[in-house]
Design a protein around this nucleic acid. Structure first.
Lengths: 212, 212
DNA sequence: TTTGGAAAATAAACACTGTTCAGTATATTT
DNA sequence: AAATATACTGAACAGTGTTTATTTTCCAAA
């Protein structure tokens, strides 16, 4: 039978402990992904790091994908922080430029996190039983709102906010992910060391192009 | 000691057989990736399919990455074919539009191959001991040449062919890969079923925008 | 304070993966 | 026919995610 302790303090503490354990697991995973790369993140390695048995992790996460979804959430939190710090202009187009720079910077300072957020399949498998991608939604909405404002104030050529949002995001993501996954490297006429500069220039030119 | 057969016919046949075996392996892998998806492609599954032992595969490929590199090569060959069929206009800008459509179509008809060509890390690991990405190079060069021509004939706003190439490719790839990896799905204001249409429209608008 | 039972943690196994290596079978040369 | 080089494979190693039966820990009532 299900036991309901009379003492409500205990059930609260249990919940706190449960949450704390999940935090420990996610923190270990985040640290490993940042310091040793995504490929080193295995259930056994995480278990080692937090000094628990691998099976214990399955008392807190139903599978690895669900765990990675929480790691992704953490990654989006740090991206959101960067956005708050670096996006502060009053002019919406200026804010768009700041956002682009912040996004590109993030991808360079935390390539493994970027991968988990926007490229790797695993964390998205948990979305089948959700009706919203809570992790990515705030950032998407921030960009959507910004594009909306840019359209209203006629500072960009776009007419539709959704197309504008996906275009800007897609443009930046396309260049970043091609580079991250080694598709620009060793291709004719593109010297390896020049690529980061080319990407930055391409994004600059693109923003110039969409300007109304 | 190293044996050098006197009969040159035999050494030739051996080479033919070696090449044929590699072809069998790659064909099995391509078929599996297309029919059952990338995740089902394991050395053991390939070995089963061609009725050899898993260890045999390692007599023809030093590791799985090298094998996948050859699978990727096959994939690029079919993309090149599509390009030859669908790109035939005389006007360079019209050709660019045809190329964009062909690229988008390919990503939809062969999403698993697209993944292997432009997203998955594995096949690119073999590039460390190469000085060129032979698989992707012809396609890249085709686009680069086309952009060069567009610039010379002043039908696009770009000044630099490399930036133009990466911009166009990056834009299309960004939207396609975000969609392929489930990042557009379940995000505010973007109904799932509309995404393919939005992507096509975004690409159209982009091409309109870069037109001189 | 001891005992009953729920909750938390784990050891061990299962079914996979890529890869290596010793040993066998086949084919070719002497 | 014997020697040798080539082709192949069974079995193992080290790793993966995950499940289950078992043990340990904890808390509440007798």
């Amino acid at each position: 039978m299900h036991c309901k302790p009379n003492n409500l303090g205990i059930i609260e503490r249990k919940e706190r402990e449960k949450a704390e354990m999940r935090r420990r697991i996610v923190d270990a995973a985040v640290q490993m992904i940042v310091e040793e790369g995504y490929e080193k993140v295995s259930i056994r390695n995480i278990a080692d790091k937090i000094e628990y048995s691998p099976a214990t992790i399955y008392l807190y996460y139903k599978d690895k994908d669900e765990l990675l979804y929480d790691v992704q959430s953490q990654a989006f939190a740090t991206l959101a922080e960067e956005f708050r710090e670096k996006i502060n202009a009053v002019d919406p187009f200026k804010r768009l430029e700041q956002l682009a720079v912040a996004y590109l910077d993030f991808s360079r300072q935390h390539p493994e996190l970027y991968d988990l957020m926007f490229i790797i399949k695993a964390p998205m498998n948990t979305l089948v039983e959700k009706e919203k991608w809570e992790n990515g939604d705030p950032s998407y909405d921030a960009l959507h709102g910004l594009m909306q404002e840019c359209i209203e104030k006629k500072v960009v050529k776009f007419k539709d906010a959704t197309i504008a949002t996906l275009s800007v995001w897609g443009f930046a993501h396309g260049l970043i992910s091609l580079h991250l996954r080694g598709r620009c490297t060793k291709v004719s006429r593109v010297p390896e060391e020049d690529i980061p500069g080319v990407i930055a220039t391409a994004i600059d030119e693109y923003l110039e192009m969409i300007k109304a």
